[in-house]
């Protein structure tokens, strides 16, 4: 998979939107590693929740021109940037300013991707609409992730696949158990140690 161009972005905009970092690129690398599996699925709809700058969903769209890509973000400035990143790389993306994926109809998405706000913080810090929302994850760094997990059985197509980035502090075993209880199998697609942070990309599927 190719890395999207982002030189159209004014650096000052990254004061308001999460700038692509190691975690974003690990997620792209994980999707690339799973490319053959994804190609076999021939996905019609792919959704990235909390797309920020749009680098991940744009990379996906570049690799899957036959898939309609959608993204959401709770931060309007991130929605605008995602749309620009996609357009700059000639990817056909539609974007909604939305809390997670709460306003979509059921069972549509063949692929859902989420790089959550995973940093362990006080509960009070998470739940906003600005750049803090891109990293502040509350208790265990999981408050937002757990809300999304709860929506997966409804929003993911029956034969769909869900990619999720976590760090060790999020207690991935608990996430695997939650998804198991919802009826999903799991795999670690890729992991990488970045400075002192162990990042992992999981996939969940039935």
């Amino acid at each position: 998979m190719e890395t999207p161009y982002q030189n159209h972005i004014d650096k000052a905009d990254f004061d308001h939107v999460y700038e692509p970092a190691e975690d974003s690129f690990l997620l792209i690398d994980a999707l690339e590693k799973d490319l053959e599996y994804l190609k076999k699925k021939n996905p019609t709809f792919c959704l990235e929740v909390g797309s920020g700058s749009g680098v991940v969903i744009t990379a996906f769209g570049m690799a899957f021109p036959q898939t309609f890509c959608l993204s959401t973000d709770i931060n309007f400035k991130a929605c605008v940037m995602s749309k620009q990143t996609a357009a700059y790389n000639k990817v056909n993306l539609d974007t909604c300013n939305m809390d997670l994926m709460s306003s979509f109809t059921d069972n549509v998405f063949d692929v859902i991707i989420f790089n959550p706000p995973y940093v362990v913080t006080e509960s009070e810090e998470c739940g906003g609409c600005d750049i803090t929302a891109s990293w502040a994850g509350g208790t265990k760094g999981r408050e937002i992730t757990d809300r999304l997990l709860n929506m997966i059985p409804k929003k993911l197509a029956n034969d769909g696949v869900f990619y999720l980035l976590l760090i060790e502090e999020n207690i991935p075993d608990e996430v695997v158990q939650i998804m198991f209880d919802y009826g999903y199998k799991s795999d670690v697609v890729l992991k990488r140690k970045v400075r002192n942070e162990q990042q992992l990309v999981f996939k969940f599927f039935r």
Binding site: F76, C79, V80, K83, D94, C96, N97, M98, D99
Partner: peptide, 9 residues
């Protein structure tokens, strides 16, 4: 606005 629906509640 700017082609982006605002579904926030």
């Amino acid at each position: 606005s700017k082609g982006i629906p605002n579904m926030l509640l």
